[in-house]
Design a protein around this nucleic acid. Structure first.
Lengths: 220, 220
DNA sequence: AAATTGAGAATGAACGTTCACTCTTTCTTC
DNA sequence: GAAGAAAGAGTGAACGTTCATTCTCAATTT
């Protein structure tokens, strides 16, 4: 971290003397800025963190930083975009689990685990409130949510067709509710509040069973 | 709203020519400021809303406003305090319901309904992210949460003693989880997303039944 | 030589807060 | 109960600071 100042034009993370192309270096610098900005936003909030604070965190002058991002708003949007994408990728793994109840438990637990690590819950809380008044961020969140929701709708829909589960309400009500439940558990960072993962899993499974109502024929 | 400017010393909301005492007037002005500040904070966020914006919303000069609150921070804290208290009062009603499952359903639905109205969900999202870095707000939220949680712990604990329910985990894990679930459903403002109250209620009841496991003897 | 990357001072707008002041109400004194 | 002093409520310009952003220029790479 400290030796970055020594030679500012040297490759940033030198791995066995590998030289970086111009565009590679540019991308690496941009990533460095985003990582530092995330730290600042978690610490001070989107509005509360100043460009100077971010500059200090990256170890870069304002002039240099503005070569990579045209505005603070652009950094905020890039961070939200990246965070939401990370989340969507996490959920995608679920689809491989044949048992739909276990699939949802797996997905929720991965989500909660992810939020618990690296201050992601704090960032997510910030994104949620920002999305309520920043149209660009709102669009990003909406797009992500719809994407994840459609994915799960197909996953759960197939289980219904196979007759494995029999939910008391339609998918259009079931899915937003399921997601908001997982959302709440992740946002509150229950592991940080002393609730162990195992108990969380037991409870979430109980909830999912209650909502999906697995049929006798669906049981393994 | 407009005629407030005509005579600045007249009672603010004149009801049948009733004159207000000094302190009554002061309290009324303070409430007026808080109401206007809430509108601004929902619109622009705690950091995003300026004192000028709040002044314009109340129809008051900065000098006057600072007679009622010593700082912007004080207004933020007062708003958070009031919102959390409102929430706690709402939950308190639940305790009168003898059936514990119905009590929790009632509480959660009231909570969700309350959040859906008056932009309370937006304010709550703001409070959540503020609580993560503002110690004063964090304390307010914590105190409120502990209070509500203890109330519910006693309520559910008694039902366990009576043998009406048999949850798979202890109260220390059950309560935070239950609360974060209701929290998530309220924060996401599911009614605004097109999920009707009735279906929400069906799903929440199914979840609670799954988590509390009512016994045969407890059934009505 | 041309282009890229960076530093860091400078810029103007906006911020929270304070100030000197005016107007209204209340209290005191006769 | 009228006159005058004291206190309270409100105004809006002004203050010092901080903000996001830009500008000028030097160092480095191609």
């Amino acid at each position: 971290m400290d030796d970055l100042v020594e030679n500012i034009y040297a490759p940033i993370e030198v791995g066995e003397g590998v030289a970086l192309t111009r565009t590679e270096r540019r991308e690496q610098q941009a990533r460095r800025i985003l990582a530092a900005a995330k730290v600042c936003f978690v610490r001070s909030g989107f509005k509360g963190a100043s460009m100077q604070e971010i500059c200090a965190e990256v170890g870069m002058s304002p002039g240099a930083l503005y070569r990579y991002f045209p505005s603070k708003e652009a950094i905020v949007e890039a961070i939200c975009e990246a965070d939401r994408r990370e989340d969507a990728v996490l959920f995608a793994r679920v689809l491989q689990e044949p048992d739909v109840v276990e699939g949802l438990v797996l997905g929720a637990m991965a989500h909660i685990r992810h939020m618990h690590e690296d201050d992601n819950a704090k960032l997510f809380a910030e994104i949620c409130s920002e999305a309520m008044r920043n149209p660009a961020v709102e669009t990003t969140c909406m797009k992500n949510m719809v994407e994840v929701q459609q994915m799960f709708a197909a996953y759960i829909g197939k289980a219904i067709e196979r007759g494995e589960i029999d939910p008391p309400v339609g998918l259009d009500a079931l899915l937003p509710t399921l997601m908001s439940v997982a959302h709440g558990m992740a946002l509150n960072d229950l592991p940080a509040m002393g609730v162990p993962y195992e108990k969380l899993e037991i409870l979430f499974r109980a909830m999912v069973v209650g909502m999906l109502r697995p049929t006798a024929s669906g049981r393994v």
